[in-house]
Design a protein around this nucleic acid. Sequence first.
DNA 1: CCGCAAAATTTCCTTCTGGGCAAATTTGCT
DNA 2: AGCAAATTTGCCCAGAAGGAAATTTTGCGG
Lengths: 214, 214
Amino acid sequence: MDTATSWAGPIDGPASLRERKKAATRLALHRAVAELSAAKGLDAVTVEAIADHANVSRRTFSNYFPNKEEALLYGERMRYDALLREIRGRPARETPWQALCRSAHVLVDVLGDMDPVWLAQMRLVHRHPSLAAHQMAMQSTVERELVTEIVARVAHPGAQPVSDDERALRARVLAGVFLAALRAAVAVWIDRQERLDLVATVDAALRCAAERLR
Amino acid sequence: MDTATSWAGPIDGPASLRERKKAATRLALHRAVAELSAAKGLDAVTVEAIADHANVSRRTFSNYFPNKEEALLYGERMRYDALLREIRGRPARETPWQALCRSAHVLVDVLGDMDPVWLAQMRLVHRHPSLAAHQMAMQSTVERELVTEIVARVAHPGAQPVSDDERALRARVLAGVFLAALRAAVAVWIDRQERLDLVATVDAALRCAAERLR
DNA sequence: CCGCAAAATTTCCTTCTGGGCAAATTTGCT
DNA sequence: AGCAAATTTGCCCAGAAGGAAATTTTGCGG
């Protein structure tokens, strides 16, 4: 069950043994919640059960995650981190929107069509409103980081100069719109899972968001 | 301190005494959290303290709200409900985006420049990440309702016909973009509070979102 | 290889939360 | 006034979050 490499997990570079062990524990906890909650639903699973299943003490769980939800959404969080890294790595000459779109494309591509574990997770999130809430919460963090990244890309080559306020506003709107588009794409893809292609759906959502709205 | 009427609160029509009392209690609890958390920060306030401050038992608090955060964000929730009502009431010939923008305008206008209580709330949310999380969570609910409302407005007068999937995607993107724009506007307005006009900022954000992105 | 300092895990403990249940109180209606 | 329904309250318990200190593991210099 080595899906770790498929989403560029934390077991990457040759870090110190300590770091690698921590990463392993974190991952074990994440998988424990995923596995247990897939069976009985998240709130029928106690933190203790999760810790047991990962062979650590209940208290250690708290050292890694503040609560079950975050543990469950850890994979999701990693994916967003990957997205952020990707964006930061885009050439500076790309406009913010280009950078965002291309990064999204890369990530969704890498994610592959239907990592079954991810699919299960998304279905779970999709159904359980409290999880959706936590996911949104996570996105609000991502959004903040995204905003600073976009603001950094001030170089609008052929655009008329704008005020600081205007730029801040634009950056926030851009970040929000981008994430909203991603969410929308995933949502409808989950809804109509059998009939749609994920990459195409994401592309469509981004194009739709970039269009002039009517 | 009768700000209740300013945001179309629950004390409206002449409902039964029971209903009015419930509404009053709910409001009292909401105000209690707001007041106490404004002073010491939200997590320094126990549910018991809130209940005490509203002259009810701790158990009764649970009858009204599932947790502190929801109690604190109750005002916010009411405002979004008002927004939804406004949108549902727009004439059917308006395109979805028009309906959204005009509703937002109405609501922000009604909200008035700087209801001081609201301002305090927003600042609190703005600082405390866990609150921002809960706010996002709430928005995800609102978003869902918004989507169904937008889907209902299928009548794109002069647009080429699109598939069901496409329409669902567009509705979700639209809802997400709209809420993202609102959030962005409020965020920068809070950031630069002294120098900006709220209505103008919201307008700018919506216009920015509606523009073709670069 | 050994032992030591730093870091991580564990045990223990306290406070707070959410919510079931049944008794007591309040409200609406006749 | 008096009864039924709705609401509040007190009591209770399983779980969550997280502080403090003891214990174990890791990394490194001798």
